[in-house]
Amino acid sequence: MIAIEHLVKYFNRRGVNEVIALSGIDLTIERGEFITVIGSNGAGKSTLLNCLAGTFRHDEGRIVINGKDISPWPEYRRARFIGRVFQNPLTGTCASLTIEQNMALAFRRGARRGLSFGVKAAYRREFMERLAMLGLGLEHRLKNAVGLLSGGQRQALTMLMASLVQPELLLLDEHTAALDPKTARKILDLTRCIVSEEHLTTLMVTHNMKQALAFGSRLLMLHNGRVILDVKEDEKRSLTKDDLLSRFYDMQGEEVESDRMLLT
């Protein structure tokens, strides 16, 4: 179980450009929950994920995973619990290393790294089996540099790598936004498949309301650094796009007109 208690995050605190990106988020995430997160630009979605991963330090509040307050932990230490897929398909993998080298790095996520060979012969069979799941033929390209792959292929690989060592929490920040629609659908199918098979606790940020409704067991809407909607299970299943939109109008009034959420 993950408890987020009154999380507050400022940027440029006490400066002229002070922004409060998270203004007191309270959230309890049960093991195995698949949560979709929506909200307008600047709502604080990425900031929330970055604070959980430790990329940013929050200013107030606590993050408790399995009873442990991990607030003071640096990003690399939290990585033991957290798998991530980024919006930019280039961020999750190393271009100059091969597919198998990238996977071997992910295979030791959170573990000590020593002087034994990075890519062990015993790993290869498992890597090939996993890669075959993608249906992209990558299982025959273990020794290709990842820089040779397309954005979609790299994102698929990142998705696989994030779940190679089972994470307590999987963070997906608009991980299909930079892909063409067909590839995006493939990555989403893969996401659904991996998350349900491994029962991963997941936070998935998306700008697509249909996706947010179709995926997961719980839906959060963020606005101005606050959770303004939190629906689960049956209630979520009965939710429609119109419900979301009207909720949105309620909160924002006219300012929503120019928002790109309306377009999707």
Partner: peptide, 28 residues
Amino acid sequence: WFLHTELGQALLATGDNPQMIVSQGVNT
């Protein structure tokens, strides 16, 4: 030899993509 070990591979990744290797749990 060293650059092929677990530690050496992490070193290569640190130069290539720090965000990636930090999120794999390495203290860059």
